[in-house]
């Protein structure tokens, strides 16, 4: 799948922002007044910034409001509802903390679940696609949720939680990669099932429909950089989990915390790039490609 920068930035930053809102909703850290304002501002910049980035890949962003209509069937529509609900509820909860020094606990918990629910709906957009076997597994929501929550703990300064959750996210990431590498073969879709010509003999793509490229090949058959996948996986895991955990194990210092956050974000960006670039769509089979 084509790793569109808008979607990579969206899922990385909004995942981090909603992860932070998740912790703020439960009162970690228990901040009020100006400190609360700073935390909420960071969370909103990340979450809303991510959502705005996601509209850049739309052909007609001016019609985006129509995407709220089909929540009964479409995960993309549910994501829209969840995101707006989470941002509204958490804005109310945050206003109580910032301006009234009041903690509305129930509202915070509802907001926390709506925030993490938004990440889940995002994950289900990918997880539901039978056409991309690597994504079509419960590991996809596990992967996106574990990174979002770990990043949230890191941003919220919950060091003990952050270390545990980062290690957990790293484990989920490794399992997702390992299982994902066999997903296409075990899904059972190949050129023989695509053409139904397998009972005659071995099928090979002889000639594509056009000498040039097309939308399908650009969007679904992205092979650039796959040969560096292993190196990138090591880099992603090192920056996303290993370096932040090592830094967090040192005595606390605000500058070191910043290093941990920046390293984590860079690692998630690399991991998200691989999430798209390594995902193979079955339509590539018709072109004799993967």
């Amino acid at each position: 799948m084509h790793p569109a920068p808008s979607v990579i930035f969206f899922s990385t930053f909004s995942g981090l922002g909603f992860g932070l809102l998740f912790f703020l909703g439960f009162g970690f850290p228990a901040v009020t007044g100006f400190t609360a304002f700073a935390f909420f501002a960071i969370a909103y910049v990340l979450a809303v910034g991510g959502l705005i980035a996601s509209t850049f890949h739309l052909g007609h962003p001016e019609r985006a409001l129509k995407a709220f209509t089909q929540w009964r069937s479409s995960w993309l529509s549910r994501e829209g509802w969840c995101a707006v609900a989470a941002l509204l509820v958490m804005a109310l909860y945050g206003a109580g903390l910032v301006f009234l020094e009041q903690r509305w606990t129930v509202l915070g918990i509802i907001g926390a679940f709506l925030s993490i629910g938004t990440v889940f709906t995002t994950a289900m957009i990918y997880g539901q696609l039978k056409t991309v076997p690597r994504w079509n597994t419960p590991l996809t929501p596990a992967y996106l949720l574990s990174i979002s929550i770990a990043g949230g703990a890191l941003m919220a300064g919950q060091i003990t939680w952050a270390i545990a959750l980062l290690v957990l996210a790293g484990a989920v990431q490794v399992i997702t990669w390992t299982m994902g590498d066999n997903a296409f073969e075990s899904a059972g879709t190949d050129l023989a099932s695509a053409t139904q010509l397998g009972n005659i003999g071995t099928v090979r793509s002889f000639e594509p429909p056009h000498t040039g490229t097309n939308y399908l090949l650009r969007e679904f058959v992205y092979v650039i950089g796959r040969k560096h996948a292993l190196k990138l996986r090591v880099i992603a895991l090192g920056l996303m989990v290993v370096l932040p955990v090592l830094v967090l194990l040192l005595p606390f210092n605000h500058w070191l915390a910043l290093v941990a956050v920046l390293s984590h974000v860079a690692g998630v960006l690399a991991s998200r790039w691989l999430f798209f670039a390594q995902a193979e769509h079955v339509v590539g089979l018709y072109y004799g490609k993967r």
Partner: peptide, 21 residues
């Protein structure tokens, strides 16, 4: 009504949908 998100083309296994550039 199409916002051009491309998700329908992602969901189609046959490559039957193409976003007009």
């Amino acid at each position: 009504d199409c916002i051009g998100c491309g998700l329908c083309a992602w969901a189609c296994p046959y490559g039957a949908r193409e976003m007009d550039a």
